[in-house]
């Protein structure tokens, strides 16, 4: 019996090995060709993806830089036909709206995030679901809500804009806060709790400092997302050609300038739209890059 298994001609394993190797040999050319094609297609798709994105950036830079004159930064928006218009009022509007939204959203989002990370229960489930809903909701609907909640009562105002922008930032902030806090090694908290410290003290002294890089990154990303939103502002701050730093009145903002001027037939207004687009893009990129650099720096500082 043992002799039979050792006989190469009747050994089913050797037979199968030969069969498989023949098939593999016969198909290897075809398989490698398919593999090459697949990989080439991936490269082509990468190129197809990168080209339009580079085009957007380069185009915005080229057109936007040309619009960056002293007037652009110091003058307010002016109607078509009147020269030397700028976006000073829009810069101030975006800054004020962004600031108010951030001041309210960051602490509130952080507290909700803390709650999600530290307590489980029905409310946590509801809040998590609500945050999911809000991340998936089209931003224009948030604008409509801002309109219903504030504009119909108090009229168009920077505050209504900040409310809408804040609602867009809030779920981002909550998720970022929860993730950052959950990332803190549990031993750190347990050590504090074991010493008998109150949860609040442990949180303030141990958890929040440890989670700080994540919280800062999350906040900056939320701000970057918030200030670029256009649709909610269109429904809440209305836009105005006058300088106004009072958030209870209608305000101008950079995304609005871009939107309103982009389809104008007047080339000087379109030019201002490009300038505003470049400015807004730079602000968003600086916030994004800044959050990475800062997070990396804080991380290194810790070690």
């Amino acid at each position: 019996m043992s002799a039979m298994t050792l006989d190469p001609l009747s050994d089913p394993i050797l037979e199968r090995r030969q069969k498989i190797q023949e098939i593999a040999q016969a198909s290897v050319g075809r398989r490698k060709a398919y593999s090459k094609i697949f990989i080439v297609v991936c490269w082509v798709f990468l190129a197809l993806a990168v080209v339009p994105l580079i085009a957007v950036i380069v185009y915005t830079f080229a057109k936007g830089i040309a619009a960056w004159t002293p007037d652009f930064f110091t003058q307010v928006t002016k109607p078509e036909g009147i020269p030397n218009g700028g976006v000073w009022n829009a810069i101030v509007g975006t800054f004020v709206i962004g600031l108010i939204a951030t001041l309210v959203t960051v602490p509130l989002g952080l507290l909700v995030g803390l709650g999600l990370a530290q307590f489980e229960g029905k409310l946590a489930g509801v809040v998590r679901f609500a945050a999911d809903v809000m991340t998936g909701v089209p931003s224009i609907l948030i604008g409509i809500f801002g309109y219903i909640a504030l504009v119909t009562r108090f009229g168009y105002s920077g505050l209504a804009g900040a409310f809408a922008i804040g609602l867009i930032m809030l779920p981002i902030m909550i998720r970022a806060g929860e993730t950052a806090i959950r990332g803190v090694p549990p031993q750190l908290q347990e050590a504090g709790i074991a010493l008998g410290a109150r949860k609040f003290i442990v949180t303030r002294r141990v958890v929040l400092p440890a989670a700080l890089p994540g919280i800062i990154t999350g906040s900056l990303l939320a701000v970057a997302r918030g200030i670029g939103e256009t649709a909610p502002l269109l429904l809440t701050i209305f836009g105005t050609q006058f300088f106004n730093s009072n958030p209870t009145k209608p305000m101008e903002a950079l995304p609005l300038v871009i939107y309103n001027y982009s389809s104008q037939p007047y080339s000087d207004l379109v030019q201002i739209a490009w300038g505003a687009a470049l400015l807004l893009m730079m602000a968003v990129l600086v916030l994004n890059i800044g959050s990475r650099v800062l997070a990396g720096f804080l991380q290194r500082e810790r070690q």
Binding site: L53, G228, P255, I258, S263, V270, A277, V284
Partner: peptide, 24 residues
């Protein structure tokens, strides 16, 4: 480099894409 660039591009406000679309 490319990965970071793509992540940054994800943050560019949509109105900029709109402007580029209508003008360019």
């Amino acid at each position: 480099v490319l990965g970071t660039a793509v992540e940054l591009l994800a943050a560019v406000p949509s109105v900029v894409y709109g402007l580029w679309g209508v003008v360019a």
